[in-house]
């Protein structure tokens, strides 16, 4: 019986992708039966394809974001709040250019633990009538000192009165793994509550610019700077949320 021909690189790839004729495939099967190393490679490559489908096929079943559907419809391409728009807005707002380096995005659907924690903390404590905070705004100096110490980073509580938000106070919360987080709560005279969630950033994660993520129906604006990650939750108006983020950013970088 003749030895099966040694398949070339392209044949093996085509074998992995199921793109060979049955005859050609059978020849390679014969070869692989005698070559365990090649067989191991081929199996690993097939597993790679399987993993990719396992990880990403669900995307095909997701409803498309509206802005993608409207691109090809003749409807006016309106209201799409995108990178360029955010950038332009921030530039008008006068934030220095180094802040974003082209990384500003919005409406992340993928949840990240940090924003998830911020959103959960928001929902839990803004509902609280009796004890929304641990330390009230009447002890602001103590509050700042205490939470700065626990976070290991000096904090400056932003004054958001220009947006109608008065500081209610703050609390200490568990962060990720062994870390801690803090939450500052603000409230308007009509009782609308906004929270600023801060935790120590993972050392290796890059600095990020402002991003907005949807989290349990809440818009979470978040960014990272130096050693801290910040999230703002509770303001429904995007323009205002951005402006508040900008003001908070400035206050914190004092």
């Amino acid at each position: 019986m003749s030895q099966p021909q040694i398949p070339n690189e392209a044949d093996l790839q085509a074998y992995v992708d199921g793109r060979l004729s049955p005859t050609h495939r059978a020849q390679i099967d014969l070869y692989l039966a005698d070559h365990p190393e090649a067989l191991e490679q081929v199996r690993a490559y097939q597993e790679q394809n399987r993993m990719l489908h396992g990880l990403f096929d669900h995307v095909l079943d997701e409803p498309l974001p509206e802005e993608l559907i409207t691109v090809t419809s003749s409807k006016q391409r309106r209201g799409v709040f995108r990178v360029a728009a955010v950038l332009a807005w921030l530039l008008v707002g006068g934030v220095s250019g180094y802040l974003f380096r082209g990384e500003v995005t919005n409406t992340l659907v993928v949840s990240t633990p940090f924003t998830e924690r911020a959103a959960i903390a928001h929902v839990v404590y803004t509902k609280e009538m009796l004890h929304p905070v641990e330390v009230g705004a009447d002890q602001e100096a103590h509050l700042v000192q205490w939470l700065s110490k626990r976070l290991g980073h000096p904090l400056h509580i932003p004054d958001l009165t220009t947006f109608g938000y008065q500081l209610v106070g703050g609390r200490l919360l568990p962060g990720d793994n062994t870390g801690v987080a803090t939450q500052f709560m603000y409230q308007t005279t009509t009782g609308v509550r906004l929270t600023l969630y801060i935790s120590v950033k993972d050392e290796s994660s890059a600095q990020t610019a402002f991003r907005i993520e949807e989290q349990d129906g809440q818009q979470v604006m978040y960014w990272a700077e130096d050693t801290l990650s910040f999230a703002l939750v509770g303001e429904k108006d995007r323009q205002r949320l951005l402006a508040i983020a900008q003001l908070t950013y400035k206050a914190m970088s004092l």
Partner: peptide
């Protein structure tokens, strides 16, 4: 849908992926 799946796998960021598709 396929452009979107590819973009999400490529970028690992849905927001940027959707922007890229758009």
């Amino acid at each position: 849908p396929n452009l979107r799946r590819y973009a999400i796998a490529l970028l690992r960021d849905r927001s940027l992926a959707d922007d890229l598709v758009q």
